[in-house]
Design a protein around this nucleic acid. Structure first.
Lengths: 154, 154
DNA sequence: CGCATAATGTTATGCGCATAATGATTCTGT
DNA sequence: ACAGAATCATTATGCGCATAACATTATGCG
């Protein structure tokens, strides 16, 4: 690919990244949350209590990041950590009542953000977008080599 | 928009963000650069010497970020800062020979990255992608209120 | 069983990015 | 001409994210 097109693409991704995060930060600020933390709460709300290693995989970031985010969310009273019953290394993380309530509010902000995001795009583009972006993310994933499976493994 | 679709979109954007940055970091590491710095060098290579305020606008990040990145790139010998002739507040930033050479290498990595990014996507999607992403970034932009100069391709 | 290896979580450190506050200049309105 | 507002750059601080090094516990294999 020639540099012009490559640069246009990379730069578009960069700006998208910065603006999406900035807009998320603005929406989350009234809840006293920083971007990144909301994903942890949403994941717990979706899947239920889980160990930090699983959280790390679900969020797509490394364990030390989870440690720090969890510590802050715990200090804020939104999550709780307790020893895993069958593994004394691990901690099970779960939502508190406060965290559950917060997750509900986040879901609404999340919809607002998504609507703002796709404003002005044709419906078919909007429909195709998540798949396209997931493919791209998968192409760039260095942890799991590279496979694109829409269906859960048998 | 219902939460399912909103979440799919936001999560896709998040993962795209993390992976694109991680892949860029891996490609830039041999050059002793961190992601973000390469954009500064490319902008100087494209547009020529400029004031830091202009750089800040071009990179889409805030002036303090530019100050720190520029300091490190200057320490590495890739850029040079000198007082602006007609404004004693400002500093003009320009590439050194080392920085110019480095920009050339970055351009190649940039093409590699873009190719990896769009692997497996149909050509028409690849062609439309930069426009779509720019529209999205523009939708989310809080600095410039709300103006998209070019509409997405038909 | 015992021991090497893997997995879980933590601390330490570093970078990019942000906002807020500060010090210098330059610009503007009257 | 001058006071006040806007602009340029910097420092301080905080967060998310990363990697590296470490201690603790699980596990697989001889």
């Amino acid at each position: 690919m020639d540099f012009e097109r490559a640069d246009a693409l990379n730069q578009a991704i960069r700006h998208l990244t910065l603006r999406h995060r900035a807009r998320a930060a603005a929406l989350l600020a009234p809840l006293d949350l920083h971007p990144g933390q909301e994903v942890l709460l949403l994941e717990l709300a979706r899947t239920g209590p889980m160990i930090q290693a699983k959280l790390s995989e679900a969020l797509g970031c490394e364990p030390p990041s989870v440690t720090l985010m969890a510590r802050k969310l715990e200090a804020a009273g939104h999550i709780r950590r307790k020893p895993a019953p069958s593994d004394r290394r691990a901690s099970v993380v779960e939502l508190t009542d406060s965290g559950t309530a917060l997750a509900g509010r986040i879901k609404q902000l999340w919809s607002t953000l998504a609507e703002e995001t796709v404003t002005g795009l044709p419906a078919e583009t909007v429909a195709a977008l998540p798949g396209i972006l997931m493919t791209i993310a998968d192409n760039l994933d260095t942890r799991r080599p590279h496979q694109h499976s829409q269906h859960p493994p048998a």
